[in-house]
Every structure is written in C-alpha cells, then in structure tokens.
C-alpha cells in the first residue's frame, strides 16, 4: 500500500512537471505579454522594451523556462505583477471558496446520484428506470451557464428567496452548488445505474436472496458496494474538473473562487498567478485520483493485489 502510494506520487510529480511546462508554453503563445498589457496600447516601444527587460521577458525562452522551473522546485511561484504579492498567496486565498463550492456540489451529486441510480438499476427496464434515464439525460444536456442564469431569474429576481451573487454565506452557496451538481448528479446516477443493473444479475445476489434477505437488504448489503468502483473513479475525476473548471459558474454567480481569479489572470497575462493556480489544481487532481484509487482498493480486495505488482 505504501509502495503503491509512493509510486503514484512519483508519477504525480512527473505530471506536475508536464503541467508546468504546458502552461508555460501556452501562456507565452498567446499574443501580447505582461508588458504590453500592463502599459496599454498607448505606450511607446522603448517603454515596453524597458519593462520587458525588468521582467526578464527579453531573455531567450529556454532561459526563462529554466529559471521558472528552478523557482517552482523551490515552491516559489513568483509575484503577481498586478497585485504585487506572491502569486501562490493570491491563489490560496481564493482556493477555499472554490473548494467549498466543489464540496457542496459533490455531496449533493453523490447523495442524489446514488439514490437515483440505485432506484433505476435495481429493476433495469422498469418504468422507474426509464423515468430516471430520461431525467438524467435532460440534466446532462442542460448547459450549466443557462441553468445558472435561469436560477438567478427564478430564485433571486422573481421569488427573491436566494441571493444571486457573491459568497460567504450558506444562502450564497445554494444556487451555484445546485447548478454545478445538476450534470454531476446525472453522471453519478448513470454510472450507479449501470453498475447496479449489472450487479443485480450476478449469482451472489441470488445467494443473498437464498439467505432470506429482503430486496432492500440485498441492495444495501451486497449490490451497492459491488457497483461503486466506477462511480468512485468518476467522482474523483469530476471533482478535479470542478476545482479548475467551475469558471463559468463562478463568473455567473460572481463567486469569489479560483475560476474567476484564473480568468482575470489570463486576461492580464499575469503569468505567475496562472502558473500557481494551474499547479495547485493539478496537484488536487492528482491527489483526488490517488484517493479514488485507494478507496477502490479498500472497496474491492482484488484491486489491492493488482496494485502490488
């Protein structure tokens, strides 16, 4: 187990190096740089050149890359030129809000998704199964930004029961969390449904019935746990996506999270912030995937053996 985790973390470091490199290149491929954006369109060429020199942007890309890599290894992500303070501090300040939103959406999605999935999967082809399939398909098809705007129109403007923007309170959390949870719930429900439907046809389910268990006991005692592995994997991946990709929803609800910081940092060519945020998100994704694998190994004793090789 320890060996497995160490090995996975080592692979994770390689992944982070890849992410750091990719971000470094992509950010610099975009037209314009810090100097042009900071000084605006009216600045003279000499002014721009002077600022580029101070920022080190006039050096060859390879030199910039190596010095940047050296800083990252020392966990120094540089200062945000816009805010004039360490980029990572800026990122970590925003991170809790995003984590809170992601966590809330994930909890909703797991609870609702599991319930819907089990109801549908326990009798494949039944009326309930078809109803859940239709509903979840709709939930996945709705564009989240549209749902978010509709929620604001209905709950904030018409009914005036929930705030439309900002963070900090539980009431603020409801609309963005539910918006994010809708497609996520559908995903969990569909994975659970297919897992449960498949498990229901296994011979050990009949064994459980032959012990005199009720259908509910058969489901909770034997079927659900056997159906969870693909669900855990998908939840792990999806949480990672939400951490970095809730950008649109954070923007719609003016949620003070990482997503909105990242968008403005890209617009301002604030390289240090973009890079710090990306590394943090990548780290979270790696840890989440590792956690999903560990949970799966705990769920199914057969997985542990394979991981040891």
């Amino acid at each position: 187990m320890t060996y497995f985790i160490v090995k996975r973390l080592a692979i994770g470091l390689l992944t982070i190096w890849g992410v750091v490199t990719a971000v470094f290149i992509v950010v610099r491929l975009a037209p314009g740089d810090q100097a042009t954006v900071a000084l605006g369109p009216d600045a003279s060429a000499a002014e721009v050149a002077a600022l580029r020199h101070t920022l080190g942007l006039d050096q060859p890309l390879l030199v910039q890359y190596l010095s940047y890599l050296g800083d990252v290894v020392r966990l120094d992500f540089g200062d945000s030129y816009r805010f004039g303070r360490p980029a990572m501090d800026q990122v970590l300040e925003r991170f809790p809000a995003t984590a809170e939103l992601t966590l809330a959406a994930t909890v909703i999605a797991i609870v609702a998704g599991l319930i819907l999935g089990v109801i549908a999967g326990k009798k494949p082809g039944s009326g309930l199964d078809r109803a859940v399939s239709t509903v979840t398909l709709g939930m996945q098809a709705l564009p989240p930004f549209w749902v978010g705007i509709m929620f604001i129109l209905i709950f904030a403007l018409q009914l005036q029961v929930l705030p439309s923007a900002g963070g900090g309170s539980l009431a603020n959390l409801v609309l963005p969390a539910v918006t994010l949870a809708i497609p996520f719930t559908a995903l969990v429900a569909r994975m659970t449904r297919s897992g449960v439907a498949e498990t229901m046809s296994e011979a050990f389910v009949q064994t459980a019935r032959s012990k005199g268990l009720t259908e509910t006991q058969v489901l909770t005692g034997h079927v659900v746990k056997n159906s969870l592995i693909p669900v855990v994997t998908v939840v792990g991946l999806q949480v990672g996506t939400l951490l970095g990709g809730a950008v649109i929803i954070e923007t719609v609800f003016a949620w003070p999270g990482l997503g909105s910081l990242l968008v403005s940092a890209v617009g301002n060519r604030d390289y240090a912030v973009v890079q710090a945020a990306t590394v943090l998100i990548a780290l979270c994704v790696i840890v989440l995937n590792l956690a999903a694998d560990i949970i799966n190994a705990k769920l199914d004793p057969r997985i542990r053996l394979e991981a040891r090789r």
Binding site: E202, A203, F204, Q206, T207, A208, R209, S210, K211, G212, L213, T214, H222, K225, N226, L299, D300, P301, R302
Partner: peptide
C-alpha cells in the same frame, strides 16, 4: 418465504466463485 430461505431450506449454488460476494 424469506423466513424459510436459509433457516429452513438452504441453497448451494453451482459456481461458488460467482455465488460468493467477491468483496466480503
């Protein structure tokens, strides 16, 4: 019937690998 199952009439299934829950 559920009372009878297991306590009055026990069942042994054909393929024990499939008939036993793999994760318990």
């Amino acid at each position: 019937i559920r009372q009878v199952r297991g306590r009055e009439i026990g069942v042994i299934f054909q393929d024990p690998l499939a008939a036993l829950n793999p994760i318990e």
